[in-house]
């Protein structure tokens, strides 16, 4: 079956995006990409630590789609600046916009995200904005030229699972863009749930990176995303949730 996720002219076979943060040892990243099948990985841009000389790029295979984020940005101007810098590294046009003015819960600023999206989409970036699940912001991002919308499943790094499903479901129904559930997905079954509902992809970082066995957890998430997607495509069967008729409402038609 030819089921690809197409974003910015790239056809992806895998609907699992992974992150490159929080690994105890970055050298395990190639094995995680292999076991999970993930073709997209996020990275962050930081000031060079002249003493460490560490660079995550040495561990990312060449054919992986790089999704730099704008972490550290507290407003649209900073996000735009980071995005332009990231692109100058010559690793493609993809950018995950992340504008976070709140250090306590790491909640994104929807208004500033829309502003940054508009500017960067006009400059030819493939913009994937990270937001609180919000239908109106999602629609505004669509008009602003976003290539996908990435609502959070629960707060970043919380591993609390897919807590925002009611709102994300509405976004999937109403917004004509791929909806990628990002952040908070703690277990493979969380990812399956999002995919069954019609999410285009899931982005998972912490749950894989901090597992006792990240390679095995990568495989578990790869399979979970695939299962959920297949379930969605196959058409989930009816679940009888409606109360059955107490008294007929249509009897008058036969009177």
């Amino acid at each position: 079956m030819n089921d690809f996720l197409e974003i910015g002219n790239i056809k992806l076979k895998s609907r699992l995006f992974t992150g490159s943060g929080k690994y105890s040892d970055d050298s395990i990243i190639p094995d995680v990409l292999e076991s999970s099948g993930s073709q997209v990985i996020t990275v962050a841009l930081r000031r060079v630590d002249f003493n460490a000389n560490e660079n995550v790029m040495t561990h990312i295979p060449k054919d992986t789609v790089l999704l730099p984020n704008t972490s550290g940005a507290r407003n649209s101007e900073e996000a735009i600046r980071i995005a332009r810098l990231a692109r100058s590294a010559g690793c493609g046009d993809w950018i995950k916009i992340e504008v976070i003015p709140d250090n306590r819960y790491l909640m994104p600023d929807g208004y500033e995200t829309v502003k940054a999206t508009e500017v960067l989409a006009n400059e030819g970036f493939i913009v994937l904005p990270y937001i609180n699940p919000d239908l109106i912001i999602g629609k505004q991002l669509h008009s602003a030229g976003a290539a996908a919308v990435m609502p959070l499943g629960s707060p970043i790094g919380s591993n609390r699972g897919f807590r925002t499903e009611e709102i994300v479901r509405i976004m999937i129904e109403e917004i004509d863009l791929p909806i990628i559930v990002d952040a908070g997905i703690g277990k493979p079954s969380d990812a399956t749930k999002a995919m069954e509902m019609g999410a285009a992809a899931c982005l998972v970082n912490t749950a894989i990176a901090v597992a006792d066995n990240p390679v095995l957890m990568g495989r578990a998430f790869g399979n979970a995303v695939k299962s959920g997607r297949d379930g969605f495509l196959a058409g989930i069967g009816a679940q009888n949730t409606n109360a059955s008729a107490s008294s007929p409402l249509t009897g008058f038609l036969d009177e």
Binding site: N242, L249, T250
Partner: peptide
């Protein structure tokens, strides 16, 4: 299925 439709519509 008109009866089922009516039940759902009412709710």
């Amino acid at each position: 299925y008109l009866e089922d439709m009516a039940q759902k519509s009412k709710i």
